[in-house]
Structures are given as C-alpha cells and as structure tokens.
Design a binder for these strands. Structure first.
Lengths: 189, 189
DNA sequence: TCTTCAAACTAACAGTTGTTAGTTTTAGTA
DNA sequence: TACTAAAACTAACAACTGTTAGTTTGAAGA
C-alpha cells in the first residue's frame, strides 16, 4: 500500500469538486482553495489540469478492465458471472464515488487519452454482452432482447455513484446481493 | 402547434452542443458558430446563456410532472402504472434526446431556477416511490427493497437519452414494452 | 549550525469568457 | 419606392482562465 502523495491529495480533492460541478466548471483556483493553497502551487505536483483528469479516469477504467478479466476466467455460469459483475461495480464505486462521477460525466474532456479510455470501455461492454448472450444460449437467461438487458443493467451500475453515498447504512456486500436480485429477477412476485 | 421561433432554434442547437460537451464547456461563440452567426447576435433572441439552460431543462421537467400527474389519476394497478411511467420516459426522451442530456447532467448549473427544478424532481421521485410501495402492499410487486427497485428503474430510464439515438430502428412503442418486460420480470427465465 | 529541497508563495502572461452598445443589413409591407 | 422592424453585424469591456518564472519558507539531515 503506497503512501499517499501530495498529488494523490490533489486528485482526490479535484474528484470531489468535479463530481459537484463537472470538470469544465472547476478552476485550478477552486482546487487550490479547497486545499488551502494557491493555484500556482498545484504545479509543483501535477503538470496540468488535464493530468488530474487522466489520473482519476484511467486508473478507474483499468480497474474495471482488470476485474472483468478475472470474471471472464472464472469457472461460473452466466448468472453467477453477472452477480460478480454487479459486485465489481459496487466494490469499485464504494471505494471511489467521486472518481466514478468523472468517469461517467467527464471522459469527453480527455484529450490524448480519450481513445484509450473509449477502447477500454467498448471492450468492457463487449465482454458484458458476451456473458448475457452466453446465458441466453444456455437457457440460463430469458430469451429477450440482449441489448436492452445490457443497457438496463449497465445504466443502473453506472449510476451507483449517485446512490451509494446516500445509503452508507447498507454495506457493500448486502447492496450487491440485493441489487443482483432486482436486476436478475425483476420486481414481479 | 406554435411556429418555431429563432429562440427555439438557438435552444435546440445549444442542447445538441450541451449534450456533447456539457453546459460549462460550450461557449456562446460555439453556439453562434453552429448557427452560422456571431455570438453577439444571439442576444437579439435570448437574454443570457443561463436563459438557454432554463428553457431546455424546465420545460422538460414540467413535462415529466404533467405526465406523472396523469398516471397518478389513472385507473390502473401498480404494474400498469409502472408501464405507463416507462412509456412516459421513452416518449419524452425520443422527442428530445439532446435536452434530456442537459436535464440529467447540467441541472447543477441552474442558478435561480435550481430550487424549483429540484422540487419538481423530488416530487416526481416521491410519486414513483409511492407507485412501487402501493404495488408491494397489494402483492403485485415482489417484497424486496423498494428503494433499490426505484433506483434501478430510474437509473435505466434516465439513461435512455444515451441509448435511444443508437436504436432508431426500434420504434418507441416497442421499446417501451420490451423495456417494461426486462425491468419488471428481470432476466431470469 | 549549515545545507538542502520539497512545497509553498507573488506576480504576471496571453487567451478566452459572457455580455453590452451602437450600427448595418435584409426582407416584407405600405 | 420608402418605411419598418427583425436580425445580423463590429468593436470593445472587465473578469476569469490555465500556466509560467522566479522567489521565499520551513523542516529534516549532515
């Protein structure tokens, strides 16, 4: 567990501000003020505003890619894999709610790194889709529109960052199982 | 059907740009260029940038409020009401995808009108929650965590704006029924 | 005590922002 | 043809933006 550097603090503070107002509406002076220093002092630790955004988004995107890699290799049926995907989202999101807001809403402000981010994201969606289609083929999942299922589940999982902070009472593990139940079984009795 | 004014064109063009980059990252010069005029000319039709954002968001929020009002009064059981809510979102979103992006992502940049928007939104969520809770009481909906169901359905419906433009082949009505099926029955066979 | 260096500071830059004031163009109507 | 009004224009503003250069501070190690 690497010790927290001053850059880490800047990134964490920025993520919180980005979550509230979005990347473009947050100025370097805002970030500096939130840390109790002057804007120019930030540049002793980071090389640009863009640098902060990259640190937030790419780390998270790679975490999702790694998690999906583990799930793909797992010896589990499709429904179990879907449960693992839900757990992955709950886990990453509860450890970094602020960053997830940027991942969802500020990725379009990435410059050089945007293509790389989009590739990770597209590959992730492909893997997710494959799990669903495999499940349909094996009769583990109902034969409905796979694209709609993917969209519905991903939308919910991507919105977790908005919701988890309000439900700190519900611990991560329980949230994962409850959410899996609703997503898989629906709300019909 | 009121004729389209120049202000309407500005609002529509702005919504498209806001969807791509967010309110803060879009400049008055960007909007003007997209319309083939100069930034100062915009002020013959609108009174401020904020004015554009208000026109986009408040109209949509009031449309949702009105739709929910109709559903509340409807003689229908809880599952039917949920289907109507899904249809409401599909309908409004397919008629104004760009505006829905601002509603979801740029409402925090509202100034005076932010409180009013938040009240409409909170009331809407309360009505939605009531439909679910009523359904649980009447055994029409499975006895699970109502808050999780609300969150899951709302997340999916609020993300429709991202997804509908890519699926123009699937017409609105069919999308509504398919989505209802997935949200209500889940993906379990 | 002196040296060192990370981390703060002040001051300034060039470019961009929303917006205003005043003027010209354009197209329909009298 | 002359008049009118909507809608464009040019020019400018004061404030704010990300970033740089050069300087000072303060605490740890020699």
């Amino acid at each position: 567990m690497r010790a927290e550097t001053r850059k880490d603090e800047i990134v964490k503070t920025s993520a919180k501000l980005f979550k509230e107002k979005g990347y473009s509406a947050v100025t370097m002076r805002d970030i500096a003020k939130a840390m109790g220093i002057k804007a120019a002092s930030l540049y002793n630790h980071i090389s640009s505003k863009q640098d902060i955004l990259i640190a937030i988004i790419i780390a998270l995107a790679e975490e999702f890619t790694a998690g999906m890699g583990t799930i793909k290799k797992a010896k589990a049926n499709s429904l179990e894999k879907l449960e693992q995907i839900v757990a992955l989202h709950v886990d990453i999101t509860s450890r970094n709610t602020d960053g997830m807001a940027s991942l969802n809403n500020d990725w379009m402000h990435l410059e050089e790194q945007q293509q790389y981010y989009l590739k990770l994201r597209l590959d992730y969606e492909d893997d997710f889709r494959n799990v669903i289609q495999e499940g349909i083929k094996n009769k583990e999942i109902v034969e409905a529109n796979a694209e709609i299922m993917l969209f519905s589940m991903l939308s919910t999982l991507r919105s977790l960052y908005l919701w988890i902070p309000k439900k700190e009472d519900l611990e991560a593990e329980k949230l994962g199982t409850e959410l899996s139940k609703v997503l898989i079984n629906g709300i019909n009795p």
